[in-house]
Structure formats: C-alpha cells, structure tokens
Amino acid sequence: MALVEIENLRKVYPGSVVALADLMLVVEEGEWVAITGPSGSGKSTLLHLLAAMDRPTSGALCVAGLDLGALGPRERARYRRETVGLVFQQYHVIPYLTVLENVMLAQYYHSMPDAVEAQTALEKVGLGYLARRLPSQLSGGELQRVCIARALINHPPLLLADEPTGNLDAANEEIVLDLFDTLHAAGHTLVVVTHDESVAGRAHRRLRLEHGALASDVRQTPAGAARQIPAGASAGG
C-alpha cells in the first residue's frame, strides 16, 4: 500500500531556482528508500517537502492520504507531530534541555510527555545512561542516536533522515545504520537522503535525483543484487 504518492511535484525557490521539476514517485509502506544525487539535485528539498517543513510550488504530494500542499499551518503542524519522525545531519537539539527532555519534547508536542517511555526509547538506541546529560556533553554519534530516539518516540509511520551519518565516524555510522535496519525490520518506512554509498547500499530501494528530476530508481535485494526500474515509471508497485 502506498504511503507516499508524488505527482508532478515542482518546487521553485525565489530567483527562479528550480529545485524539483515535475517529480513522480510512489513509496510503499515499509520501504527503506535511499535518495542520492549530487549537491543541488533537490534531495533535501524533497525531504523537507515530505516533512511538511516547506510548501510545494505545484503538483501533488500525498502522505498517508493527506495532500500536504493543501494543508493549513495547524494541519501541517499536526502532520509533523503525528506522521513523520525527523533526523537531521546537524542533529538539531534544544541545547538547554537534557537528553531525556529533548526526547520528551516530541512527546509534549504530540500528546503528553512520558519520562519512562522516553527513557525506554533512549535505551533502545543504547543511550539510557546518558539521559540526564546536556547535549553539549555528548559526542556527535550519541547526539544522532538521541535524534533517532526522538524521531521514533511517537511511533510515526514515516521516518525521514537527511544525511544522518554525514557528521559521524565509521563506528557511529555503523551503529546508526544498524538502528535503521532494526526499524525497517520492525515495519517502519524510511526515506534517507545521503551522499554516502555505504548508507545507500543498506537501503532496499535507491533513488537518484539530478537537476530536480528522478534519474534512476533501483531496488536492491539484501544481498546487494539490483533490479533497474526505468526512471519516470516508478509507480511503486
């Protein structure tokens, strides 16, 4: 069943900079999709549009049955807290809240903060013992795992990650990718923007964007063998 349905999606920034040009895409529930491509190809723009952190210029962008382009500010806020979990490359956190409070912040905006549940989420990413620390006392890899715990605390159907390992060393990258494997195995839908071949190689489907358009759409088997789908015909089935 399709979770994300994109039709003729276009995003033009001021100054007539075309970030996405009539993109067509379908992402099924439970897929792990890696979006690759050179800088300026529209990867992050697509992710921000999927997260309802920006508005499309034209075209249709439906996630979980919601037309994101037609939503008002309140509905978009509700969509962000209920439907998506976000992981950023720069592991954005509130610097004056503890690690536990940062995770609880997502609960606060979603429904009710629950310290026990937030602590469990931190333990799942191996950071239960750092719950009372401030973000400034954590390494980059630890912070990224905090962001993953925060992104998952409300059990969103769609996890979006923008260069999640871009600032991590090899050991921490491996930890984060193992977490993604676990989430995928648990049925989460993952859309990950990356430059990193090793990250893209762990995904089950690899999209390549060039100049705002889909250049390739490759499904990968767990063994790494690939099956090519012609660009523009990626109707997800």
Binding site: R78, R80, E82, L86, A106, Y109
Partner: peptide, 9 residues
Amino acid sequence: LMKALGAED
C-alpha cells in the same frame, strides 16, 4: 526545531 517536531506557530 520545535515547529519541525509539531509545535504550532
């Protein structure tokens, strides 16, 4: 960030 986590304006 608060908005990205679902806070309203």
